[in-house]
Design a binder for these strands. Structure first.
Lengths: 351, 351
DNA sequence: CTTAGCACTCGGGAACAATGAGTGCTAACA
DNA sequence: TGTTAGCACTCATTGTTCCCGAGTGCTAAG
């Protein structure tokens, strides 16, 4: 059975009101809305229908109506009006993004904080990688007595290093040999393509510095794997407490600790083949504890084969329109920022 | 007026009981304790005295007594019995510490998580540096078309790097010259010893690669400053909600957000010249919001001029003995771990 | 100095009534 | 046939009252 226009209008109004008030909405309140030219009684009839159809719920006989999960779903998919960001809002988002940032993980942490602040809700962020990472280049630097610095440049242009202190003596030429061997055999190889066989080969041709090889290999494998693992950051947990549905400590605690314990860690997988902004309404969430919690997520492009995701966690009754708008704007601005030609990398030399 | 032995015993018992129950303690409960051979009436008299002296408080006429801040202070300083860690406890702490860790900041994050888990309270951790950090050594690596890797080794033996992409052409020999200049002029210099004068000198002798200098200097200064700034990590916020005193959302929210907003960031300064474990009881805390919250902190040594601090945030009524014991044990184990000869750094080459 | 006894205080919970927002249904109206 | 006014009914919430009991301080006796 298809919904009549009027039913849609009523449903939308109920969700809108409920989002604002967090309290069951009665027929009278709806009837009083400016562009609703019907009496409470008529609205009541519509509400009874919508309840029968599963879009609304009634906490108890003498209370107003509350949207059901199906109601939210419909709202999000069809009914919700676009929210237009005000100039103030876009500006404060832009200012936030302009802050300088360093490494990817630190950056994602900051992004999460910013999103949380912009939405007044806990926010999550992840950076994940579509393709396997490999090493592009090895360098070994002799750094004083018994210290060697290993510098590794990844296929993503990220550079990592490790200080190796070792008791045995190797000299510059040994290192040169070893680094040549490494560059010849181990570049372009992802973590799971590395075989004991290959290890054997490297060891055999490594000469004097062979004892360094296991340390190096371990570091590299560790690094590559770490690059692939997506590390989910959550920021602004506390803001969940501002929401009326979490005024009961028990509930708040359950939700917050399940988040702390990684209940959201499968979100990246869920988003994998989704595009744009995705809304997970209450029961669509995987974990039991989060069943009256919703998640809104958006992807954005970091460049270098890295994909970012930002999202917001909140009560099922959250202002989807507003949240979605802010997230999209954020995502867009971030994409732009990452993909514009890197210019301020090298400011014109002074004088 | 000095406290009699019996008064001390009563006070200690009251605090002990209150720590467990979180509820005002009455004379009867104290009188019933195994080694308390007095009647409730006698205890009442003592309690009246202790109240007059400011060590106890009475929420209302017909309730039991609750320790005042002064009461806790006395308890922590003189009365509290040593808590002995059980074998189970030490073991689980050891297991936690054995986990492998990488960079210092990541490490401190993990430590905070561990401490929080071990104490069932929110935990904080900081690593701070007593002396200024300087650069020990510069290396520049030519990494393919227009890419240069800057590798910097700090006085702390930490190694950092940055990829510089630049449009202009420099060759190996230019880089050699520049790195020689850098090593000659800018090593051993801390962030605030760097003068425009020095910058001038470096620029003049840098030759072809002079346009790299500003980027390098900016990175180095940034890095050095970042090394000095102490970054405070908080973990396990949620556990605060388990405590009965934070069952009121408003209170919990106030405390949690003031923590989130950095209310604890001056703790390192407070600890600076303290030694061992320090307990900050309620009102001794600086921020208004944290006035019925206490903090227990311990220092430990990371080596390389780095100093670690771990601590716990909880209600003023917290089990100081237990918390202190766990913290000290943690601190000790961490110190040991960091300062033992680095051996597994280089496992014997296989075969 | 210790303790039994007792009158007194007062917070918290149970029981109960009043309030009012909201509903569903029926009947009248356009 | 769709809309609306009217009305009886439901039920969560709020306020009131009352009672209970834990705990106290004081006094007087041991």
């Amino acid at each position: 059975m298809e919904l009549t226009e009027r039913k849609k209008k009523v449903l939308r109004s109920i969700v809108d009101l409920y989002i604002r008030s967090a309290e069951p909405v009665g027929s009278k309140a709806i009837a009083q809305l400016p562009d609703m030219n019907y009496s409470p009684a008529t609205i009541r009839n519509e509400m009874a229908d919508l309840t029968a159809m599963g879009y609304l719920e009634q906490p108890h006989t003498s209370a107003g109506r509350v949207p059901s999960a199906a109601g939210y779903r419909l709202y999000v998919d069809e009914l919700m009006a676009d929210y237009r960001l005000s100039l103030d809002e876009t500006q404060s988002i832009n200012v936030a993004i302009e802050e300088k940032m360093q490494r990817v993980d630190e950056l994602m942490e900051k992004v999460a904080k910013m999103v949380s602040q912009a939405t007044d809700l806990p926010a999550i962020s992840v950076a994940s990688r579509s393709s396997g990472v490999t090493v592009k280049r090895f360098d070994l630097i002799m750094a004083g007595a018994g210290s060697i610095i290993l510098v590794v440049m990844l296929s993503t242009d990220e550079v990592l290093n490790k200080l190796i202190k070792l008791p045995l003596n190797v000299d510059e030429s040994d290192l040169k040999l070893l680094s040549a061997v490494l560059n010849a055999t181990m570049t372009g190889i992802s973590a799971d393509e590395f075989t004991p066989n290959l290890m054997e080969r490297v060891l055999n041709s490594a000469g004097m510095a062979a004892s360094l090889v296991p340390v190096i290999v371990e570091f590299v494998m560790d690094t590559l794997r770490r690059q692939e693992s997506t590390n989910l950051t959550v920021a602004g947990h506390v803001r969940l407490l501002e929401q009326p549905e979490y005024r009961s400590i028990d509930k708040a605690q359950r939700v917050l600790s399940s988040i702390d314990e990684g209940a959201l860690s499968n979100l990246p997988a869920v988003m994998q083949n989704a595009s744009g902004t995705k809304v997970l309404v209450g029961p669509e969430n995987i974990t039991e504890e989060l069943k009256d919690t919703s998640v809104v997520m958006t992807k954005f492009d970091i460049g270098d084969g890295l994909q970012g995701m930002i999202g917001v966690v909140g009560p099922t009754r959250m202002d989807y329109a507003k949240v979605t708008a802010r997230l999209s704007y954020f995502a867009e601005s971030l994409s732009k920022m990452f993909n514009k030609p890197e210019q301020e990398q090298l400011p014109a030399a002074k004088e």
